[in-house]
Design a protein around this nucleic acid. Structure first.
Length: 703
DNA sequence: GTGGCGTGGCTTTTT
DNA sequence: GCCACGCCAC
């Protein structure tokens, strides 16, 4: 009993209500910083501690490995024992786990391999080539998006009806179909396929479905607003008639619509799952009153919300500072100055921006001052070139028909097997519907390639045969041996450049990762296969920070779920944020949610900035402040004047119909005026097209 | 097989 | 303006 008190004591009234809610479906609308993870983990611990559920009756699903790991750790701390039988994982890892168990019913080979996005793109490229389509017209990236979007919606090639005159759809369909056949033939499963296959498995197999429905009586979902169609349907099957869903999410933080997330899933939840109780957690433990007021006011501009208003017991705090920069360099300069004036830890500061490209100006400015920083983004450990090559060397000996792995390493390091040879092999493979491995053997036997290449090819095939003999070594030794024998390590050693040195370090790190994995998975009969799955499903850390205490630079998307004492939200300009490509109503609302996410990352102090002009695609363009700035009540904002030059003219000096001269655009007429004061904008019809300009800084000459 | 040049595209990202 | 990629020439 004592334990239950400890479980419930740290909770506020809404949190406690959610944690101890009756065993029915529950939708927790958890605002930013309201204790979402706490709510989930305490609910699960509460179910166990009150003996209402055994751990093996509980399933908890997240989107990221990070969230899954944290949840497991926190549950274990709460119940003070390992969570045996309790499944906690990402949608993908749980789907993968089920497919490994039920591979046969899912019509997969037992040894199916996971294809990451990069592998998938390469596979699609191969197919487009094989279909003799022009890569410019039929871009592999577009095809990849097409395929994944269909899969996210549960659409198979056979479900697509393409009218013959719809050339685009006909070809996309064609590529999708070929891709699906190829994957099936070689036993490859991409990320979207993991979910779709799983959904179909439950849909088509009542024995399996009922088994898991009876087992997982309590299903918990984190970040529910990010679920896509197939994840939602999968949850419906898994829940069945008896299961109870406990979902936590925030429709106002749905920012992944562009990759298939359906905000409707949270909006319609109580229609699809009857007797759903809805609990709102609106008390915020993160930000000042002012920051919350700004966030609330901004998000109120969205339609069709489930509705929520964040509040705090804390004080209003500082105003939100607004800086109107002249240029992106000026903007970065401003941020750096404020950082230098900060007396706390650097890791409490985040610079957030809409697009990755914006990071450079900040990086340069920070670098100049020698302030330690860390940029999120970039390649993850298992995505690195040399690591992927190595993984291919580990895979091919045991999956000879894996064309992706074959193509990746046939000439890495260089061994005289260039495009000509590979093209010949592809031709043979295509003609006889074989894998490249099989084609290679035929090519040698039938002397379809020249003597030298043939000799090199035999050497390569022998190498792979030889690598297969390492299978009984401990995993890390197997990795080590393969690195040497493949020639990859000696290759980088010979090169001796700084770049090569880094790659060598990464290869070394892979051996460590293998050793670690061995220790964590003792007794597994399929260690190498498990390791390869792990590499695909958990891409590992991004570029590791060399410093513990450093400024955090990241896109708004990567900032979700994090919090900082000080946040700089930069580039608040029309066309950049909201982004040019997101000006349609539905997308605009997602941009606004993104802005809401950004604002609510700040605990204590928030700086907003925009620039009067900005380099875009090699041109300096003038830009107007983001409409989102106008949606924040001015009383919460405090403008900081730019340090150099003063505004040349006051807004109220301009009249509609007035003729003006701009140093860049020439002579024009004012046709529109919007807003007041510093953020006011005027629209001017110049010779070619109308331009919106920030009135205060437009540097216009009256005529 | 490699390096150099030209062209296109250019929002966000996890698994 | 910058980068990535494809093609072509050596």
């Amino acid at each position: 009993m004592n334990n239950i008190t400890t479980l419930l004591d740290p909770l506020n009234q809404q949190q406690r209500q959610a944690v101890t809610a009756p065993l029915e479906h529950l939708l927790v609308l958890a605002g930013a910083g309201s204790g979402k993870t706490k709510c989930l983990t305490h609910r699960i611990a509460w179910l166990i501690e009150t003996n209402q559920a055994g751990p093996h009756n509980i399933l908890a699903v997240t989107f990221t490995n990070k969230a899954a790991n944290e949840m497991r750790y926190r549950i274990e701390s709460l119940i003070q024992r390992p969570t045996r039988g309790l499944w906690v994982g990402t949608f993908h890892s749980i789907a993968h786990r089920l497919l490994r168990i039920h591979w046969e019913e899912a019509q997969l080979p037992q040894t199916f391999q996971i294809l990451d996005s990069d592998d998938q793109l390469r596979a699609i490229k191969r197919i487009i080539k094989a279909l003799r389509l022009d890569e410019k017209t039929w871009s592999p990236k577009q095809a990849q998006q097409f395929i994944n979007a269909r899969k996210d919606d549960g659409i198979r090639p056979k479900d697509i009806v393409a009218e013959p005159q719809d050339d685009w759809l006909v070809q996309m369909h064609n590529i999708y179909q070929t891709y699906e056949q190829d994957c099936q033939r070689s036993g490859l499963v991409d990320f979207a396929e993991l979910l779709l296959r799983n959904y179909e498995l439950l849909r088509d197999n009542s024995t399996i479905r009922e088994h898991y429905q009876q087992r997982f009586l309590f299903i918990h979902v984190d970040e529910f607003q990010d679920t896509n169609t197939i994840q939602y349907q999968w949850l419906r099957f898994l829940t069945g008639e008896q299961g109870k869903l406990f979902v936590v999410g925030d429709d106002d933080q749905s920012i992944y619509g562009w990759r298939g997330a359906r905000i409707e899933n949270i909006q319609n939840f109580s229609h699809d799952f009857l007797n759903t109780q809805i609990i709102r957690m609106e008390q915020n433990y993160r930000s000042t009153g002012t920051i919350l007021a700004a966030a609330n006011a901004l998000i109120a501009h969205n339609q069709g919300r489930l509705g929520k208003n964040l509040w705090t017991q804390d004080s209003a705090g500082d105003p939100i500072y607004l800086y109107a920069a002249y240029t992106e360099t000026d903007e970065a300069q401003f941020v750096v100055e404020k950082i230098q004036a900060w007396r706390g830890q650097l890791k409490d500061i985040a610079i957030l921006y809409r697009t990755t490209a914006q990071s450079r100006q900040f990086e340069e400015a920070i670098l100049q001052k020698g302030i330690p920083y860390r940029i999120y983004g970039g390649l993850r450990f298992y995505e690195r070139l040399e690591i992927k090559d190595m993984l291919a060397y580990l895979r091919l000996p045991f999956h000879r028909n894996d064309d992706g792995a074959f193509e990746r390493i046939i000439n890495t390091p260089k061994r005289g097997l260039g495009d000509r040879t590979v093209e010949t092999l592809r031709g043979i493979a295509r003609q006889q519907n074989l894998s490249l491995w099989q084609a290679a053997q035929i090519a040698i036997d039938t002397k379809q390639i020249k003597a030298r290449a043939s000799h090199n090819l035999s050497t390569f095939l022998n190498l792979i045969e030889q690598l297969a003999q390492h299978k009984d070594l401990p995993l890390h030794e197997q990795v080590q041996q393969t690195q040497m024998a493949s020639g990859l390590q000696p290759h980088y050693q010979k090169e001796g450049k700084v770049e090569a040195q880094r790659r060598l370090e990464n290869l070394e790190e892979l051996i460590n990762a293998a050793r670690q994995f061995e220790q964590n998975h003792q007794g597994s009969q399929t260690l190498l296969a498990d390791f390869l799955d792990h590499a695909a499903l958990e891409a590992g850390e991004r570029q590791s920070g060399r410093f513990d205490d450093c400024i955090q630079l990241m896109t708004l998307h990567s900032a979700k779920g994090l919090e900082f004492q000080v946040v700089f939200l930069c580039g608040l300009e029309e066309g950049l944020f909201p982004h040019q490509n997101s000006l349609e109503e539905a997308q605009l609302e997602e941009e606004r949610r993104l802005c809401y996410v950004g604002i609510t990352r700040a605990r204590q102090r928030l700086y907003l900035s925009h620039s009067e002009s900005r380099y875009r695609y090699g041109q300096r363009d003038s830009s107007t402040p983001s409409r989102f700035l106008g949606e924040i009540p001015p009383e919460h904002l405090q403008s900081l004047r730019p340090r150099s030059a003063k505004p040349l003219t006051q807004t109220h000096n301009y009249q509609i119909g007035q003729r003006v001269k701009h140093r860049q655009y020439g002579i024009g007429t004012i046709i529109n005026k919007e807003g007041q004061g510093k953020l006011a904008r005027i629209q001017i019809q110049f010779k070619h097209q109308p331009q919106w300009l920030l009135a205060a800084y437009a540097r216009l000459e009256k005529l």
